[in-house]
């Protein structure tokens, strides 16, 4: 059964009821507000914590904050990529309404992450930053990922969808795949020795990308019934 077709006469399943609920604009607005706060809090919390207690983030608060923001950007990026597989699997088309907000928050966290690197680590000394960009693959790849996501963020509005046309817009927004891959490689190259966490993200990303393969999509949909 397709997500947008009218509900069947059979007793509603939980996902069907969710699908129905997400057609009510009022409820969607409330849920969006909740999602907004949930996405914003992990970005605000580390500096707030530090402001309230200078020792709260340990000996290296800058590193703590840079990594927190980087982690959150990556996690939100993966959550953004989860929307489509989840929508197919559960048959809840309304989930799509939350995707743009997730994507934009991923970009916002990324902006903070980049800004903190430029300021805290490189002290806004531009020739050092430029040297870093050229010399260090994990910085280079991270920055390429940032530029890709910048393009996505700039074209995220409804007006831009209309202006670019659906086909071109979709093509541009497929850049989220290379951007996410770059983000994971960036993390992987950054760690000194213990790659457990980057490996975990790599596995999650692999699954999320695999869910988009034409061989996998129908299987995801079938699981629903």
């Amino acid at each position: 059964m397709d997500a947008v077709s009218p509900p069947s006469k059979a007793p509603f399943s939980l996902t069907q009821r969710l699908d129905e609920a997400l057609k009510q604009p009022k409820l969607v607005r409330v849920l969006k507000l909740m999602l907004f706060v949930a996405c914003l809090w992990p970005m605000v919390e580390p500096p707030l914590h530090l402001y309230l207690d200078p020792l709260a983030l340990g000996a290296n608060p800058a590193e703590h904050i840079i990594r927190d923001w980087g982690d959150w950007a990556l996690q939100l990026l993966l959550l953004t990529l989860l929307v489509t597989p989840l929508r197919l699997w559960l048959g809840v088309g309304g989930l799509l309404r939350f995707r743009r907000m997730l994507g934009l928050f991923a970009f916002a966290a990324l902006c903070l992450h980049v800004l903190a690197y430029l300021g805290f680590d490189r002290f806004f000394i531009w020739d050092e930053i430029w040297a870093d960009l050229l010399k260090r693959p994990f910085i280079t790849l991270g920055m390429i990922g940032f530029v890709l996501l910048l393009a996505l963020a700039l074209t995220s509005s409804r007006a831009m969808v209309l202006r670019l046309g659906g086909a071109l817009w979709t093509r541009i927004h497929k850049l989220i795949y290379p951007a996410a891959i770059l983000a994971v490689i960036h993390y992987w190259l950054m760690v000194k020795r213990d790659v457990t966490e980057p490996l975990l993200y790599a596995c999650l990303l692999f699954m999320l990308l695999a869910a988009r393969l034409p061989q996998v999509r129908p299987w995801l949909k079938k699981r629903r019934s």
Binding site: P54, L55, G58, A59, N60, P61, A62, E63, I65, G119, F120, D121, R122, F123, E128, A131, D132, R136, F138, L189, M190
Partner: peptide, 16 residues
Amino acid sequence: PRWSQKRERLLPALFA
């Protein structure tokens, strides 16, 4: 090879 050694962060300073 992966980062500069020109400056350092004297902990717990935010800026290196």
